[in-house]
């Protein structure tokens, strides 16, 4: 029930605070009331029809890079 899916914001309708998002090829309208500063092209996490939080892609990349470094280091040692 606390499942969430990532999606990219394509279009924002400010009148009713909804956005058209693309979730890995699946388009849908979701509520964006919970993220007041959301912008087109942002990645968001969708839960129960609402964008719950922004996804920080840079942070995602950094975390993976950290693992990659750690794991190759381990291999070499």
């Amino acid at each position: 029930m606390c499942l969430g899916v990532p999606a990219k914001v394509i279009m924002i309708n400010n009148e009713n605070r909804t956005a058209l998002v693309d979730s890995f090829g699946v388009p849908r309208w979701v509520g964006i009331t919970l993220i007041p500063d959301v912008k087109v092209d942002d990645y968001v996490l969708i839960h129960a029809g609402y964008a719950l939080e922004k996804i920080d892609l840079q942070e995602a990349e950094e975390r993976i890079k950290l693992w990659e470094e750690l794991l190759t280091l381990e291999e070499e040692s």
Binding site: K8, L57, A60, E61, I64, W67, E68, L71, E74
Partner: peptide, 24 residues
Amino acid sequence: QEEEERASLLKFRDRQLSRKLLQE
């Protein structure tokens, strides 16, 4: 660009990386 963005999210499912981390 979108492919790259998605790839950075999909990396968390990467088999090779997961296998290594599992060993760790």
